[in-house]
Design a protein around this nucleic acid. Structure first.
Length: 898
RNA sequence: AGGCGAGUAGCUCAGUGGUAGAGCAGGCGCCUUACACGCGCCGGGUCGCAGGUUCAAUCCCUGUCUCGCCUACCA
């Protein structure tokens, strides 16, 4: 055992254990198990995806909770899978096709191209799942799902058809967002606005048809004037009132259109107070057009080129058209100036092309009826958000929800189950390809070319993955899922929609708790991007420092962050975690090196009824009590989704208590030079040490699964122990081992030891010099405690002798003095003490003590405080005041002696 | 424009109605036989600013400044 290497090397261990866990089937959640379920569905990564820090964070959190609950005897099931990611995947494969063969998808045709995407997916689509294995994620791989697999597709079609039957899916000609590069419609959410883009507000004049003058309008998109069908002014605007009802003659195309009054569209304070109205290319203008029965003229085609409606500009790309229109207006003397104008321009989320509002026939989902129950469910607390504040954001969006454009003009995705009749143009929506038109009986039917928005399949994920629409055992056992963990960036895209779908199709919320984590940025708060070159690749991190280090670093940083704040991640976080792993490794080495003659069964027998059976010394009673505190703290933190607090609690328990004190306190008893009577008692020290370590490993396992398994396996355990730490019980506090008195005594010992070390350091007393120390105490209680533990103090503070006394003559010779609480510590030092330094220090301390004392004294003589403050606070302050008084006397005395 | 949120140690962040904590960084000293990926010690904060409530405010309220995010709009 003692031949473990001096440093921890994760590389070998991690691979070995993951394979072992898989082989033993530990990750599988049995739908028939008679245990309380705990289920999570993974946010399915895109098949094009590779692991990035955001995934690493989310999956670490999920694995922490899954492993924790699994150990806590829940029927834990964490479902993996991938998303077909319509546009993203199609783009990747198109690019690949272009690079390899110089072909476009149109060269291949729909069927061959789709086949190509499937091949690509077979080859690369599981890459990210492999990476999750490297991270140690305890996913139930038998349940891996894919949003385009037949069973899942069936659910998607079912949902579309049902919504259609319910009148919640409709087809309509609406103004939608169109990406001329992806050549598809987009939902509102898929349009990103880059705020504050510097643009131009261009003004030009429309001549009135009767020659009586002109009206000047302003626009940021001059080319859209080709589709103008009105100019609107405010009805109360005196500048324009006389023009209302007059006609404008379009300068380029043979068309006249009216000047209308519209108080909704026009803000008289903006620009010239006259607005050009282009119903086919602007959402507000579209609505205005509806109000006034204006014609809608589409002047751009699906590629962004001007249509025949654009007259002389037909065929020009929209950018060229803008230039040409401006040039022509100038020629005609209609240009009226331009000024810089900051406004937001919508871009395609996938390709960053400027999105055009276009009039187009698309499929929509009516959202308001779906949103109502989902709003109610959150109001009633059926699903709660962590951090809570996200609930408000959710509510805001849900109460202002707009219909969802779900059709996409792509090839990769679920084809819409709508069939167009060639004879009567009726559309039949059906689960299976219909034989004949539902209206005229015509047999010539053509399926709609469009596919569904990727999110139209994702929003079914929590139940479609469990077998819906069939009423499966999986669904009964694991739905609603317990927890959903995802980034806040897809709150609307995914979380809100899942709530709506879950309630609508299953009648229950899809998850009880939504944990929204932050985004991970680089250490300066900048988004990681390949272009900037600041990407930290989790796979590299794991290769360098191990998955445990990465996971622990992320867990450490995972506070319930406020909105708008990110996790600033740097390699130094991982290095810190790695040092922690190494520390644990070495603590384990120490324990294992000192287990001669140790019998875990004997220890288990003697402590089966609690600590009394073993007659422990203070360090053992103390650490076994601290084990319970740590256990309590970690469980509570996890219960409350405080991941960082949980990680930090284990960290401090292991490092500060087990390593810094427990092991140090154990050393004398374990020493080869220990006297024979001590040797007989050694099993208690070993037992407490092993217990502390073993419990610590279980507490830490959800965070650092590999290291804890490796160490746990080597620790001695009673014969009936499990095969793996993964399937042992998560620690729960054992109140029989709680020992307030021992914790208080140990706290005093620690305080005194620290004070002595401090004195030694300040006076440069070398480690080799064994000092004599006098501890002057105020009461018999303290004296009794310290008398009992003076041996511990002298061992830990490296003293020759520790004498505890109440008063008595000051020792002869040079001393250094400190006060720890109300214990005065007098350290005999060799040579001369630095009296000046000592005086300065003591005086500083006196100043601090005095100010504290005065503050408290004043407070305690304030009648209003004494009258109104709670008794507990009063009592605490009085005790503190007494302590300060004693300490002051000690310091004053020490100063007097100098 | 509306909403959400943040301003606490050099940095990154916790935190509580009773005069503040962690990790890292910094300084000093140590190879004290588990660990130098380590050990011991030390320094460092009028808790953004101004008012208010309270016996008591870093914490609650109001205002204000700065920063971040979200939604909508921007002819």
């Amino acid at each position: 055992m003692s031949d473990l290497p001096k440093s921890y090397d994760p590389s070998v261990i991690e691979k070995r254990w993951y394979a072992e866990w898989m082989a033993r089937g530990y990750f599988h959640g049995d739908a028939a198990a008679p245990k309380a379920p705990f289920s999570i569905v993974i946010p399915p990564p895109n098949v094009t995806g590779y692991l990035h820090m955001g995934h690493a964070l989310g999956r670490t959190i999920e694995d922490i909770f899954t492993r924790w609950k699994r150990m806590a005897a829940y029927n834990a099931m964490w479902l993996p899978g991938t998303d077909h990611a319509g546009i993203a995947t199609q783009m990747v494969v198109e690019r690949d096709l272009k690079e390899r063969e110089g072909k476009s998808r149109h060269d291949l045709g729909r069927e061959a191209f789709t086949e190509r995407v499937w091949q690509w997916r077979e080859k690369y689509g599981n890459r990210i799942l492999e990476q999750l294995r490297v991270m140690g994620c305890s996913l139930d791989w038998d349940r891996t799902r894919f949003t385009m697999e037949p069973a899942y597709s069936r659910a998607v079609i079912e949902v579309f058809v049902r919504l259609h039957e319910e009148g919640l899916v409709y087809r309509a000609k609406r103004l939608i967002n169109w990406c001329v590069s992806c050549r598809t419609a987009l939902s509102d959410l898929e349009v990103e606005y880059d705020e504050g883009a510097q643009g131009e507000l261009y003004e030009f004049a429309y001549p009135l048809a009767d020659g009586s003058g002109e009206v000047v309008v302003a626009t940021t998109r001059p080319e859209t004037m080709l589709g103008d069908t009105a100019v609107a002014v405010h009805p109360d605007d005196p500048r324009h009132q006389s023009k209302i009802g007059k006609l404008i003659k379009h300068p380029f195309v043979a068309r006249e259109f009216p000047i209308i009054a519209d108080g909704q569209l026009v803000d008289p304070k903006f620009g010239t107070g006259a607005v050009k109205v282009t119903p086919a290319h602007d959402p507000n203008d579209f609505e205005c057009g509806q109000r006034h029965q204006l014609a809608s003229i589409s002047i751009l085609d699906e590629q962004g080129a001007v249509t025949a409606e654009g007259g002389p500009f037909a065929g020009l790309d929209r950018a060229a058209a803008r230039k040409a229109v401006k040039a022509r207006l100038k020629e005609l003397g209609l240009e009226r100036g331009s000024k810089p104008h900051v406004h937001a321009v919508g871009h395609c989320q996938r390709c960053n092309t400027v999105v055009e509002p276009m009039l187009s026939t698309q499929w929509f989902v009516k959202m308001e009826p779906l949103a109502q129950p989902a709003i109610k469910a959150v109001e009633e607390g059926k699903t709660r958000f962590v951090p809570e504040s996200w609930g408000k954001t959710y509510m805001h969006w849900m109460t202002n929800i707009r219909d969802w454009c779900v059709s996409r003009q792509l090839w990769w995705g679920h084809r819409i189950p709508a069939y167009h009749c060639a004879t009567c143009r009726e559309i039949t929506v059906a689960r299976d390809t219909p034989k004949a038109c539902s209206k005229c009986g015509g047999a010539e039917l053509r399926q709609d070319d469009d596919v569904l928005d990727t999110w139209f399949s994702s929003w079914l994920w929590p139940f479609a993955t469990l077998g819906w629409p069939d009423e499966t055992r999986e669904l009964r056992t694991f739905y609603p899922t317990t927890l959903l963990v995802t980034g806040y960036d897809i709150l609307f895209f995914w979380v809100a929609r899942m709530l709506m779908a879950g309630l609508h199709f299953c009648g229950k919320v899809p998850f009880r708790t939504v944990y929204l984590h932050t985004l991970v940025t680089d250490e300066h708060g900048d988004k990681m991007s390949k272009v900037k070159g600041n990407v930290i690749d989790p796979v590299d991190v794991i290769a360098q420092h191990g998955a445990d280090a990465l996971r622990f670093a992320l867990a450490w940083l995972t506070t319930q962050a406020a909105q708008g704040k990110n996790i600033k991640f740097s390699m130094s976080n991982v290095e810190d975690a790695r040092r922690f792993a190494n520390k644990i490794w070495n603590a384990a080495r120490f324990v294992l090196m000192n287990l001669e003659d140790y019998d875990p069964n004997r220890y288990a027998d003697r402590t089966a009824e609690g600590p009394d059976g073993a007659e422990f010394e203070l360090p053992e009673r103390w650490i076994l009590s601290r084990v319970q505190r740590a256990t309590e703290e970690v469980n509570r933190a996890l219960d409350e989704y405080r991941v960082a607090d949980a990680a930090q609690a284990v960290y401090h328990f292991i490092w500060d208590e087990v390593c810094d004190w427990c092991i140090e306190l154990a050393k004398p008893a374990l020493s080869k030079e220990a006297p024979p009577h001590k040797l007989a008692e050694r099993w208690k020290v070993q037992g407490a040490l092993v217990t502390a370590m073993e419990t610590a490993m279980r507490l830490l396992h959800p965070f650092m699964p590999f290291l804890t398994e490796e160490i746990w396996q080597t620790l001695p355990k009673p014969v009936a122990a499990s095969q793996s730490i993964m399937i042992t019980m998560y620690p729960i506090p054992d109140v029989r081992f709680l020992d307030d008195a021992s914790e208080a005594s140990m706290a005093l010992v620690q305080k005194v030891v620290s004070a002595i070390r401090s004195l030694r350091a300040e006076n440069n007393v070398p480690l080799s010099f064994r000092s004599r120390v006098f501890l002057n105490v105020a009461d018999d209680y303290r004296k009794t405690i310290l008398d009992g533990y003076q041996k511990l103090v002298s061992e830990q503070a490296r003293c020759r002798e520790v004498a505890v006394r109440r008063g008595g003559e000051p020792p002869v010779g040079p001393t250094a003095v400190a006060v720890a609480g109300d214990v005065e510590i007098v350290l005999m030092i060799e040579g001369t003490a630095d009296a000046g330094a000592e005086r300065t220090k003591l005086e500083k301390e006196r100043t601090k003590l005095t100010s504290d004392r005065d503050f408290l004294a004043k407070k305690l003589t304030n009648p209003q405080f004494v009258e109104r403050a709670p008794a507990a606070v009063l009592e605490k302050d009085r005790a503190r005041l007494a302590e300060l008084e004693t300490a002051l006397v000690r310091v004053a005395a020490a100063l007097g002696r100098l």
